[in-house]
Amino acid sequence: MNTAEVSGETEPKKIPLLEVSKLNVEFSKQKGFLNRGRNVIRAVRNVSFEIFESEILSLVGESGSGKTTVARCIMALKAPTSGSIKYKGVDLNSIGGKKLLDYRRDVQMIFQDPFESFSPRLTVLETISYPIRRLAGETNRTKIRDIAAKLLSEVGLVPEDVLHKFPHQLSGGERQRVNIAKALASNPKLLVADEPVTMLDASQRLNVLALLMRLKQSRNLTIILITHDLASAQIMSSRIAVMYLGRIVELGPTNVILSEPCHPYTQMILQSTPRLIPGHRRVLRSTIAGEERPDYDDRGCSFRPRCKYATSICSSNDPILELKRNQQQHFAACHNPLH
């Protein structure tokens, strides 16, 4: 509607679709014989961000940075140790039962490994039927079949070809498309895509990303893209949040993060990403820049052991995520920002 569009643009502050604030998740690991003493691993520390309707936000970070744990909290698969997640203003902690089921309809997830996220004994039709029955509430078998076929063609598969196949008969790209079709069954508003193309062959990656982008436009989806790859974050998202050891260390518009990173860690991953520029071969160095995982100590910046710009304040004070550039919504958690 025209009026809605106009008001959406002129409104000074939009209400976020999802608001994550001060999220903390701790895992405790048994230590020693007879469980004497506990080792607490803080997988997610004070993570706050918001995502607005029909936006794509990328969570970028290496393995162990806590990005999947954040996703599991958003999916209400894992209860946070502290902090809150609000969907359309309603705190997830406060809902249960039917309301939680409604939430699960609205928020769906695409998992990383298309080879392990299927039951090998169910056909594609049986796999997709489940969310149609459970979340969309359809019981008529012919109708379920019709809906499944429609979803499959929406993700670019030929329904007659794949409906009765088992997962092992499909390629990685086809399986990931079935995964996406399954996630769309309940007509979600928000998709959490956890490394959706990491396991795919190079020729399939761009296709699946293009499919997600097309679905975002046709269904007005909001997407949280979890990835370790800056290139796919760049091509897909309007904003990027960079995570390191459980924290968001930098958050801002994609083009700003990639051209003028504030945080030394963002700069480090940008410089390590191969670019393939004609006539220019990168110079590989074998130096070990604090590759060892630092201990989870609580004082100071957690990137400090690997950081070449670290000063004394970095080992005593924990930097907080704060606005670096007012007009550009660019946040960084660093005592010595680069730009």
């Binding site: 670019g156 598969l157 790209g173 296709n207 760049q234 990639l258 191969p274 670019r275």
Partner: peptide, 21 residues
């Protein structure tokens, strides 16, 4: 179909429509 930082503008829109992929 290679994705590298900095050189992908337009790659998504040029990517094959799914059935052809």
């Amino acid at each position: 179909s290679l994705l590298t930082v900095g050189s992908n503008s337009g790659k998504l829109s040029k990517a094959m429509i799914p059935t052809e992929g």
